[in-house]
Nucleic acid binder design. Sequence first.
DNA 1: ATAGTTAGTGCAATCGATTGCATGAAGTCA
DNA 2: TGACTTCATGCAATCGATTGCACTAACTAT
Lengths: 342, 342
Amino acid sequence: MSRPVPTIKEIADAAGVHPSTVSRALNPKKRHLVAKEVAGRIAVQAEALGYQPNRLAANLRLGRSDLIGVLLPDIANPVFGPILGGIAEVLSAEGYAPIVANAGNAPSQQVGFVERLLSQRVDGMILATVSQDDELVGFCIQRGLPVMLVNRSEAQDRVSSVVSDDNLGMRLAVDHLGALGHRRIAHVAGPLSTSTGAQRRDGFAHAMARRGLNGAVREAAGYSREAGRLAATDLLDAAGDITAVVAANDLLALGVLDALAARRLRCPGDVSLVGHNDMPLMDVVSPPLTTVRIEHREMGRIAARMLVETIKSRSSELRHVVLSPELVVRQSTAPRAVAARA
Amino acid sequence: MSRPVPTIKEIADAAGVHPSTVSRALNPKKRHLVAKEVAGRIAVQAEALGYQPNRLAANLRLGRSDLIGVLLPDIANPVFGPILGGIAEVLSAEGYAPIVANAGNAPSQQVGFVERLLSQRVDGMILATVSQDDELVGFCIQRGLPVMLVNRSEAQDRVSSVVSDDNLGMRLAVDHLGALGHRRIAHVAGPLSTSTGAQRRDGFAHAMARRGLNGAVREAAGYSREAGRLAATDLLDAAGDITAVVAANDLLALGVLDALAARRLRCPGDVSLVGHNDMPLMDVVSPPLTTVRIEHREMGRIAARMLVETIKSRSSELRHVVLSPELVVRQSTAPRAVAARA
DNA sequence: ATAGTTAGTGCAATCGATTGCATGAAGTCA
DNA sequence: TGACTTCATGCAATCGATTGCACTAACTAT
């Protein structure tokens, strides 16, 4: 059994000074108040005794925690690793640590996670879970906790966010398909309760309208491959003559591939396909997926940086950063087949 | 600007009792010491005033934090999402929260993360970053911090771990290839400084020896697709007549695919390929990958559960859990081609 | 030598929650 | 009615670090 970690009081006894002098000597910002010789003696004793700062005690006094809550809907979804990686990189550089909550999609479940984070007195929160009318956002605002949204936004414009330009993304996708001669283009949408569902659906409609076209849309129940398969199956049942599909994310696109495979339709021979995100490995799926690339790690970095700035400045000014996606063309899109399918 | 969060003292004033009575009333484990009527009054006031427990203060007094440090080498690697998901699930159920550190692979960099976690007084640590002779493990032991290893083990047997049975995994892979008629089987190993690198390399050699065979091995510099490509290129340069490769993980396997593609070798037509992990999407890569499946989410759950048990029991008894992997046969392996390649 | 100034250090309150022990009120028993 | 017991509540110390203010020693100027 190890001996307890020494405290400032024990360093003080060993160095022959008052604990408050030790506290000042060990804090770079207050060290200038302590005589050099004394500060040196204290540093030697702290090192020798293996002093370990106790941020619990310091932060109780200072009214902060140096912790940031990060709410993710599904950490196993390959999109969130890069986002969390970007968040962690910036928080670490700024002296914070992320408490990660794999909070799921149900608000009733998410509230429990948020309450735990609030009780740990996190200094702010980054939400990747937000829906259009999100009660958690209200909950956090009510408690005066700085909140930052990443990847999705919310409809009431109450907090800052970093998202992708879904209108542009959809225009890139539809224009790409249009340029390949496709006119019967459909959309597998994400849940319309999320901004990524609603805005990509709207972006799709706008982009089609610009070409004088009107495409079928089916909403998936969630952002999963299986939900994508079900939505695509429904779509193909209803509009079997489509020659292209734009999915609201890559997992949905993989589900579309499953639905096509189920009815022996080839991609891109029979149906071209575009996804969103460009999550890892999309270049090695079969076929390699054409997709709207969103820089998720950078999105995470920006979100963390903006939250830290909000915390430090005690500002309540809102900012919305909209990143421009780019189309990555791979082999899941091809010119429209001339011969009609039987 | 929101009003400050009410404290127990303010609830006490509102309910007309002493703060210590409020503390007992709001703690389910001590509530039985408070008269029912008084506890009810206190609960009403706490709800009305929006009381939020302050775990910083409580835990300073109690000498704990309800926080667990989780060290990952690369959160964007698709293997770690499921592991973190399993960890988060169990920690949440047990009243803990994970502080995630994307600590990279260099010990000098990792120490900074560990010191930050120590200063936050985490109650324990789960390391997915461990190497065979890991100085961080010694660092944590020296401070009396409960440590749990997940996915990898360390050579000195100082702390508990949950890993996959790499010997069995390699036997499954080599036997599968042997049954398909392959005899010139090579191995792309992970870094031998990790147990997954060393033990899978050893497992490969044993499995081959059992068949009276001896296969070429090349160590990749890291667990990345690019490192896999470089190691495979070196392997193919040195032993161009191999007909099968077992890679130490799926990312390395994808790199092997890249190297094969670069020299117009078809998989599995010219070279069969097996990976390890069965990370997400391996069923839709081209070709769908035969791989040794490791239940990462379950591994994360077990690691978290064992760490929590260690913390609660104050036991220093070591345990090692070795999970049995299974071979998932997809289309990257085929019978050895009879005709020799030109 | 004395008065004034400055630097360095110590004192004690504070952050917010927890709990061992003391105290008093209520209940029970002879 | 008095002694004893039990329950509920309050008191105050504690956890470990921070910091405003007070005090003292050293230095400087007249």
